[in-house]
C-alpha cells in the first residue's frame, strides 16, 4: 500500500512509483501485445482490436445500456452476498463454538463444498426458470462457504491464552464469545468476505450467461449470438473493473474494521 516515494524525490519520480502509473503501464503493454495478436489473427469476430473494443465500450456507456446491465448485476450480487453473509457467518460461529453443531453440520458442508456452483445451474433452471432467482441462488450458494469456513476457523483458532486471560478477570462465557472469540475471528471472517466477493463475481457471470434475462453475463451471451465481439469484450472489461473495485472496497473495509491486524503476529 504505502510504498510512498522518498521525501524530497522529484515529482516525476513520485509519479513513476505511483500505483496508477504502474497499472497504466502494464495495461498499455497488454494492449500492444493484444493489438499485435489481433493483427496476426486478422479476424474481427475472433479477436477485434483493443481500439474497437474501447469504442464499443464508450458507446455502450453513453447509451446507458451498460449502466442498466451493470445495475441489475450489482443488485443481484449485493443481495446474494448479503444473504450468504447472513447465513454463513452465524452458521460458522455456531460450528466454531459448539462441537455438537459442527458434528451435525460438518459432513453436510464437506459434501456440498466441492460441488461447483455452476453444477447447480441446470437443476436451478428447472426449479427457478430464467429470472432473478437463479443467479441469486447460485451466488448465495457459492459465497456461503468462504463466509462459513473462515468464520468457523477464525473462532476455533482464537488464542487460548486470551481466553484464559479473560477468565482470570472473572468474565462469563457470553462475554468471552462476544468480546474475545468474535473479535479474534474478525480478520479471518473478513478474509472470507474477500474470497466470497471474488467467488460471487465469477458465479454471477456464469449464472447470468444461462439463466437470466438481463445483466452483464446475459449481455455477453446476447452479443456473442449477434457476433458482436467488441461488445462482448467491452462487457468483460466492465466485469473485470467492477470485480476489482469490489475487492478494493472489501480491503478498505478490512483496514477500517481491523486496524490492529496489520501488525498481528507481532502483536499480543
Amino acid at each position: 500500500m504505502a510504498q510512498a516515494a522518498e521525501i524530497g524525490a522529484p515529482p516525476a519520480r513520485q509519479w513513476r512509483q505511483s500505483t496508477v502509473f504502474l497499472y497504466l503501464r502494464s495495461l498499455f503493454a497488454l494492449a500492444i501485445i493484444w493489438s499485435l495478436i489481433a493483427l496476426w489473427v486478422g479476424n474481427h469476430v475472433i479477436l477485434p482490436q483493443p481500439t474497437s473494443v474501447a469504442y464499443e465500450l464508450f458507446r455502450l456507456v453513453i447509451s446507458g445500456e451498460m449502466l442498466v446491465h451493470a445495475a441489475v448485476s450489482l443488485w443481484r450480487l449485493v443481495l446474494s452476498y448479503a444473504l450468504a453473509a447472513l447465513i454463513g457467518i452465524p452458521l460458522g460461529l455456531l460450528m466454531g463454538l459448539w462441537p455438537w453443531a459442527s458434528d451435525l453440520l460438518d459432513p453436510v458442508v464437506e459434501i456440498l463444498r466441492p460441488i461447483s456452483g455452476i453444477a447447480w445451474i441446470p437443476l436451478a433452471l428447472f426449479i427457478f426458470g430464467v429470472g432473478n432467482e437463479l443467479p441469486i441462488f447460485i451466488i448465495t450458494y457459492v459465497a456461503l462457504f468462504p463466509f462459513l469456513l473462515n468464520t468457523m476457523a477464525g473462532v476455533r483458532t482464537t488464542d487460548r491464552t486470551l481466553i484464559r486471560a479473560a477468565r482470570t478477570m472473572g468474565v462469563d462465557q457470553r462475554t468471552i464469545i462476544r468480546h474475545v472469540m468474535i473479535p479474534s475471528a474478525l480478520p479471518q471472517i473478513l478474509t472470507g468476505a474477500r474470497i466470497a466477493g471474488g467467488a460471487a463475481w465469477m458465479s454471477l457471470v456464469a449464472a447470468e450467461l444461462i439463466g437470466a434475462p438481463s445483466g452483464l453475463g446475459f449481455a455477453i451471451e446476447w452479443y456473442r449470438q449477434l457476433l458482436m465481439t467488441p461488445k462482448v469484450i467491452a462487457v468483460i472489461v466492465v466485469i473485470s473493473l467492477l470485480g476489482y473495485l469490489t475487492d478494493r472496497l472489501l480491503r478498505w473495509l478490512q483496514r477500517r474494521l481491523t486496524p490492529w491486524s496489520t501488525g498481528i503476529g507481532a502483536g499480543r
Binding site: 484464559r164 486471560a165 482470570t168 478477570m169 502483536g267
Partner: peptide
C-alpha cells in the same frame, strides 16, 4: 479475585 499476568502478555490485539 485471582488475576493473572502472562509471559506472552495475552493482551487483546483488537
Amino acid at each position: 479475585e485471582r488475576g493473572m499476568v502472562f509471559q506472552d502478555y495475552a493482551l487483546f490485539p483488537w
